[in-house]
Design a protein around this nucleic acid. Structure first.
Length: 293
DNA sequence: CGGTACGCCTGAAGGC
DNA sequence: TGCCTTCAGGCGTACC
């Protein structure tokens, strides 16, 4: 399930296949998959344009054309890009909803880039201008790789909701999903049910550092492949091997050897260590003393 | 405000 | 073996 590290890995692997190249044509195989318009045209999806950048904020990608048009892309749960030499090479691959036919202007070399998404939780959304893209992204919080205690702290208040729920809210910060929320909270030694607005300054600083280091390490590892995540070149990520809590409910904590607990928080399966992620001297939950400002 | 539930989807995995 | 149920979850939305 692509979160920031996986999306960044996709961005990096997709870039050489698209940036600097011209879109010679777009095959819209499932028009209903294209967001924001009933009858999408190839021109909506950068046909005739030259791609100048692949941008990312949080879990969103955007291919930006020289004309200023853009296409916003979200991988949802199972979205992936498939690069092949020609459309014939995509035959037999199910759930390919859009195919971009690209050409390298200098050499005339061609490739096709397909967007495949079995579950269709992903999104391909045309943006008529850079402003439209900026507007769409303005609702997102700061990219999780850029947060500081100064930018994150105020966004957690006022907050009686669980810190885990706040981290999953893309308006608070962009890019964290279920896996990295659990991993970051473990590294920060914060219980997932702690109230977001009740964290002390040092705890916010710890959380910030944990989020950034967990995401950076995952990017270095090419992301986490659980079932079928692969980048545009078909490569898997290896960060799954380094998950300390995600997917390990009932197993032993790598730090203290205790049993990891799992439960539902914000409608997401969550795993945490009841020993390590407990306030010193506290009961694991906010108690209205000590850390309040 | 926050929490809960649901719908969108398919495929993997588990149970019998 | 094969069928059926459950689960996975990003995100928007409705409702309490």
């Amino acid at each position: 399930m692509p979160e920031l590290p996986e999306v960044e890995q996709v961005r990096r692997s997709l870039r050489p296949h698209l940036v600097g190249r011209v879109i010679r044509g777009v095959e819209i195989r499932r028009p209903g998959f294209i967001a924001g318009t009933d009858r999408p045209t190839p021109a909506d999806l950068l046909a005739g344009d030259r791609v100048v950048a692949i941008e990312r904020v949080g879990k969103f990608l955007a291919a930006v054309g020289a004309s200023g048009r853009a296409v916003q892309l979200h991988l949802g749960m199972t979205g992936r890009f498939i690069v092949r030499a020609s459309v014939e090479d995509l035959a037999g691959i199910e759930h390919v909803h859009v195919v971009w036919k690209v050409e390298e202007p200098a050499s005339g070399a061609r490739e096709v880039v397909g967007f495949c998404d079995p579950r269709r939780f992903g999104e391909v959304r045309p943006c008529a201008s850079a402003d439209a893209l900026r507007e769409a992204w303005s609702r997102l919080g700061p990219d999780a790789l850029t947060i500081t205690p100064e930018t994150l702290g105020p966004r957690l208040r006022p907050g009686r909701r669980a810190i885990k729920a706040a981290l999953l809210d893309q308006r608070v910060l962009a890019g964290v999903g279920n896996i990295y929320a659990d991993e970051a909270l473990f590294d920060a030694r914060l219980g997932p049910r702690r109230h977001a607005g009740g964290l002390s300054g040092p705890e916010i600083a710890r959380l910030c550092g944990a989020i950034r280091s967990v995401l950076a390490s995952a990017i270095d590892a090419g992301g986490s492949t659980l079932r079928d995540f692969v980048d545009a070149d078909g490569a898997e990520g290896s960060y799954r091997d380094r998950h300390k809590v995600y997917g390990r409910g009932g197993e032993t904590c790598v730090v203290c050897g205790g049993v990891l607990r799992s439960g539902l928080i914000a409608q997401r399966t969550s795993v945490w260590c009841p020993v390590c992620q407990q306030r010193p001297g506290g009961g694991g939950r906010a108690r209205g003393r000590g850390a309040m400002p």
